[in-house]
Design a binder for these strands. Structure first.
Length: 482
RNA sequence: GCUCCCAUCGUCUAGCGGCCUAGGACACCGCCCUUUCACGGCGGCAGCGCGGGUUCGAAUCCCGCUGGGAGUGCCA
């Protein structure tokens, strides 16, 4: 008994959808559960009008990022065209197909308000020959029905009376998904078809095709086990839309979600690990995952929860790891991956690795995504603090006392021992001299130094900035407000 | 319209007839910690869609209703 053979079969028509990522992940889980399981990647590129080569690269890159490496492939469905056409020949010989030259308008006109869905079978017995206007249709059996055995949903029955004679090849000769997918799954000896719920309605068609192929080829391959995953939906409970919803996996990568966190979160959508802990390493995810346990109802992709989990993963990193993995967002290297559209406020020359390393542990416990890092540390590298005018107005310009304190502090800073504890004591003392507590005093100082009212701990920041620059910024802020 | 799927806190889920006065997590709200913001800790808010059965007993099984979703392409 050999292990499961699963496949992920995306079409390269856009960014790598998070729903696709989850389908890929669940397939990968199943493959990795057996030492001899096989995870196969097949690019379903039969729709020449919509496919673009760059999207293929995108899929591969995104899967690579998530650590979902294919054991076989990536294959191109288009490379299998000869097999698809051979299948059509065999199915024709077996009497399963016919040519049809009806246009959509004609079918519509004939059907009127007939409620039966799909094609009306007009050409079924016309015995048309192949021409430039004929598509190829499958003769769906007239009576009976087909049962889909679904690991997640149980048996789902479809009456043949509601399955029309569907098209399997266009008049151009191009073979369509319905057939190509089945031919390839047979040839690839796929044992489990794990995919989105939207495919459930066309599964009986594919089973019919599979059985027909078994008959005409003389090679009886067992139909695969099916598992249809619940949809991923948005707040409106609608299927995640490429146009309206943030569904591009690439975008999450750019924003600084860690792949291990992303994988962990994806696994939580429609499934849950044992116990009460949700942050679970991928090895345990693989171990515990069971298709039978996947939930039946749609799941909302909750970015807030993703971000929380990501924060947990970030904090679980050692400082060294955190620093190394921050680099693409703070000091990207030529030739290495970097977030697209990343614009750093500082130049590579201005970046100071030592300062970043000193600040890193403080940053690490404050962020949910890596892309938050630059705004927390930019003041360390820029010649002038990036001044937030609202913050300046509120903390410095508004109250004369804050300027008085700033000037007094600048003088004190001239002689104080330059370490965080002394700085702490000094700022506090100067504030208290003017009847301001530390909470209140730190605001104008922080603003003067960092340009903002929120950020990493103040005294460590001062320490790193150095005496001269700190004093200069404090004085400058006080003058500017006068 | 037709076919199919689905239904536990706002969200993701645990629950697979008694362990449930329904557990966890996110979000939200308090409190503590605290130099801001976070992190962390503690606490709180909040749910089995409705109606019938079955059963000694139902969130769990069955039926109906209602609600939501998907499919209904010479797309995948």
């Amino acid at each position: 008994m050999s292990g499961p053979r699963v496949r992920f079969a995306p079409s390269p028509t856009g960014y790598f959808h998070v729903g696709s990522a989850r389908s890929a992940l669940f397939n990968w889980f199943v493959a990795r559960q057996s030492s001899d399981g096989v995870f196969l990647l097949r690019i379903e590129d039969t729709d020449a009008d919509r496919n673009r080569e760059e999207w293929v690269d995108g899929i591969v890159a995104a899967m690579d990022w998530l650590g979902l490496h294919a054991d076989e492939g990536p294959f191109r469905q288009s490379d299998n065209a000869p097999a698809h056409h051979e299948a059509i020949g065999q199915l024709f010989a077996g009497g399963f197909l016919y040519y049809c030259d009806c246009t959509g308008d004609q079918v519509q006109a004939r059907k009127g308000d007939n409620k039966t869905p799909g094609y009306d079978g007009f050409c079924r017995d016309r015995g048309l020959e192949r021409s430039e206007t004929t598509g190829v249709r499958f003769k769906t059996p007239v009576g009976g029905g087909t049962t889909v055995h679904d690991l997640i949903r149980g048996d789902v029955e479809f009456s043949h009376s509601v399955i029309d004679d569907f098209i399997i090849a266009k008049s151009s000769g191009a073979v369509l998904f319905a057939l190509a997918n089945v031919v390839d799954d047979r040839n690839d000896a796929i044992s489990h078809v794990i995919r989105g719920e939207e495919h459930l309605p066309n599964t009986p068609k594919q089973i019919l095709l599979w059985q027909a192929l078994n008959e005409v080829t003389g090679v009886a391959t067992p139909t695969p086990v099916y598992a249809h995953l619940p949809l991923l939906v948005n707040e409106q409970r609608k299927k995640l839309s490429k146009r309206k919803d943030p569904v591009a996996t690439e975008q999450y990568r750019d924003e600084g979600y860690l792949p291990e966190a992303f994988v962990n979160y994806l696994a939580l959508l429609g499934w849950s690990p044992r116990g009460e802990e949700e942050k679970v390493p991928v090895t345990q995810l693989i171990e515990q995952f069971r298709l039978e346990d996947v939930s039946h109802s749609p799941a909302f992709f909750d970015v807030k929860k993703l971000q929380h989990l990501n924060g947990e993963y970030i904090r679980a990193l050692s400082v060294e790891q955190f620093i190394a993995r921050s680099l693409p967002w703070v000091h990207p290297t030529d030739g290495e991956w970097r977030p697209s559209q990343l614009t750093l406020p500082w130049t590579p020359e201005q970046f100071d690795m030592a300062r970043f390393e000193a600040m890193a542990p403080l940053v690490q416990e404050r962020i949910g995504v890596m892309s938050e890092i630059p705004a927390m540390i930019d003041f360390l590298f820029l010649p002038e603090p990036p001044m937030d005018e609202d913050a300046f107005a509120k903390s410095i310009a508004k109250d004369e006392k804050s300027r008085v304190i700033l000037r007094a502090l600048a003088d004190e800073l001239l002689t104080v021992t330059w370490d965080r504890d002394q700085l702490h004591a000094t700022v506090q003392a100067v504030g208290e001299r003017h009847e301001w507590n530390l909470r209140k005093t730190q605001a104008p100082v922080r603003c003067a130094l960092t340009g903002r009212l929120v950020g990493p701990p103040l005294f460590e920041s001062m320490e790193l900035l150095g005496r001269d620059e700190t004093i200069r910024r404090v004085r400058q802020a006080a003058e500017r407000a006068s």
